[in-house]
């Protein structure tokens, strides 16, 4: 069980040029096993939101609840992946993926089971047999695949993805969307995906949340009613196209708000 409830969260950073109000009265609910995509103008506080959910930051106001319990600090049942896959050059792919298991205690896996877990994950993302390769031998897309494996190796209940496909070329990105859906079918997690790509959000998520411009709050929520078992062609369906149009419009509104806010 792991549902995330974000209630009335406000957050302010202290910067050199005074306080920066980043999140304002944000409400967001992610049910157990749900996949929610969060989109919004650049700098509106999306990455800040991921840090709040991961317990790396505590909000100034409001609550972040996981399974009905307040998040007071880091919890080991979280997996994270970012735009930059940050693999350690001195470790093999297998050793990189196993990194979380060196920190999380009580996973109860022996050396052989750990190896099996890694091969299982690598197979899911299409990197069979890459266990002993070095990160420097991998392309950008392959590195991102490995980074997803690392985020999932300890079977986290919550997966946090902060623009993981943002730096990839269009073809690789679409391949990875398919991989992501496959992972979701096989592994059980509640996921929060930050993205700038509306097609990505519609293809991957059950719900898309649009944040308003800074300070970010919930501006618009779009439920994605597309078949569970979807291929990329689903994006050409009329429902999907109208969703994308709505989302685009909402983003434009949010962006305008942010520019006006900055001008004041």
């Amino acid at each position: 069980m792991s549902d995330i409830k974000i209630q009335n969260v406000c957050h302010t950073y202290n910067t050199n040029s005074g306080p920066l109000h980043v999140l304002d009265q944000l409400d967001l609910e992610i049910g157990d096993g749900d996949f929610v995509a969060v989109v919004g103008p650049s700098g509106c506080g999306k990455s800040t939101l991921t840090k709040l959910v991961a317990g790396l930051l505590i909000p100034d106001e409001g609550d972040v609840m996981l399974d009905g319990e307040r998040v007071k600090g880091p919890r080991s049942n979280v997996g994270m992946a970012f735009q930059n896959p940050v693999l350690l050059e001195w470790r093999t792919i297998e050793q990189n993926i196993l990194l979380p298991l060196e920190i999380v205690k009580g996973h109860g896996l022996d050396a052989r089971q750990r190896k099996e877990r890694v091969s299982e994950l690598l197979a899911m993302v299409g990197l069979e047999g890459f266990e002993n390769k070095r990160p420097s031998e991998l392309s950008g897309g392959m590195r991102q695949r490995a980074s997803l494996c690392r985020a999932l190796v300890h079977r986290p209940e919550v997966l946090i993805l902060d623009e993981p496909f943002g730096a990839l070329d269009a073809f690789t990105r679409e391949d990875l969307w398919v991989v992501m859906r496959e992972l979701r079918r096989q592994e059980k997690f509640t996921c929060m995906l930050i993205t700038h790509d509306l097609r990505e959000s519609v293809y991957l998520a059950d719900r898309v949340v649009v944040l308003s411009g800074r300070p970010g709050g919930t501006q618009y929520v779009q439920d994605v009613d597309l078949p569970e078992d979807r291929g990329l062609d689903v994006l050409f369906k009329p429902e999907a196209i109208s969703m994308l149009a709505d989302l685009r419009e909402q983003i434009a509104i949010g962006q305008k708000r942010q520019t006006i806010g900055e001008a004041v």
Binding site: L56, P74, N84, L99, I103, V104, R150
Partner: peptide, 18 residues
Amino acid sequence: LEPEYRDILRSLGASPFT
């Protein structure tokens, strides 16, 4: 040091020393 490393490890409860 890339901040992503810090986030990944800290979110799992790693100490600064680790």
